[in-house]
Simulated assay, not measured.
Amino acid sequence: MFIRTDEQSAHDNYRLLIGSIVPRPIAFVTSVDENGIVNAAPFSFFNIVNNDPPMIMFSCGRLKNGELKDTSRNILGSKEFAVHIVDEENIEKVNHTSINAPSGISEISLAGLTTVPGQAVKVPRVQECKIAMECRLFLGCKLVGESLFS
């Protein structure tokens, strides 16, 4: 079978990707806005980038109107965030945070989750998650030939 992604809708391409690349880990990302409100959102486009130095990545799309989502805006502003690994015990509550809550409303409290202070960053971790990685944004790129590597 040959599928032309340029002849499909974005939704069809999304379904193709998430159905083809499995298992697909879920990153549960917390960030903090300029008013100290904790934002939380799950991201299914997430993986390891490097081990030395340890680096992970997740892809945060934009809103339909082209504006940045709260997660991106918060991380670009503070340069800090926390990534949690989702497991079966917390999947329902984490999934609840994917709602389209207005900016300034914390999805953490709406989902019934608990925050604990970060140790290396100002962004809190989620107590119910067994694994949390406190992260700082890395924006380093160099151009090699026709490809962009970061």
Rank of each mutant, 00 (worst) to 15 (best):
M55H: 14
P23I: 02
N90D: 11
K122G: 15
C141T: 07
P117D: 08
G118K: 10
I91N: 00
G145W: 02
I108G: 10
C135S: 06
P53D: 04
E146Y: 11
E134R: 06
N65Y: 11
A10P: 02
S150F: 15
V121H: 04
D52K: 12
L63M: 12
Y14E: 11
I108P: 15
E88N: 13
L76G: 05
G145E: 07
C141N: 10
T115K: 07
R136D: 11
G61N: 12
I99K: 15
V94Y: 03
A132W: 02
F81C: 15
S147V: 10
V126D: 08
Q8S: 09
V123R: 04
S44C: 02
E89K: 01
D6I: 00
P124C: 00
T97R: 13
S147G: 00
H84A: 05
L139A: 13
E34G: 10
S44L: 03
H96Q: 03
R24T: 04
D6N: 14
D33A: 03
T71P: 00
S103F: 11
G36Y: 01
G140E: 06
N39G: 07
G104N: 09
K64G: 14
G66E: 12
A10T: 09
L76C: 01
V121F: 02
A111P: 15
E88P: 00
I105F: 08
R24S: 02
I85L: 09
R62I: 08
P53L: 01
R15A: 12
T5D: 09
S9H: 09
S44R: 10
T97Q: 02
S20Q: 01
N95Y: 13
P54N: 02
N13H: 11
S103E: 01
R24K: 02
R4G: 09
I18Y: 14
P124N: 07
E134G: 03
H84F: 10
V144D: 13
V29M: 10
Q8T: 06
M1L: 08
M133W: 05
Y14K: 06
I99S: 08
A41H: 00
D6F: 11
V126N: 03
P23V: 04
N35D: 14
G36Q: 06
E80T: 04
D87E: 05
I18Q: 08
A111K: 12
Q8Y: 06
P102S: 08
S44D: 04
K69R: 14
V86W: 08
A27I: 07
K93Q: 14
K130I: 02
D6W: 12
A111L: 03
S106G: 06
S106D: 05
S31M: 07
A27P: 00
A10H: 11
L16V: 07
C60I: 06
C60L: 06
S9T: 15
S20H: 07
P25G: 11
F46P: 00
R73F: 09
D12H: 09
P102Y: 04
H84D: 07
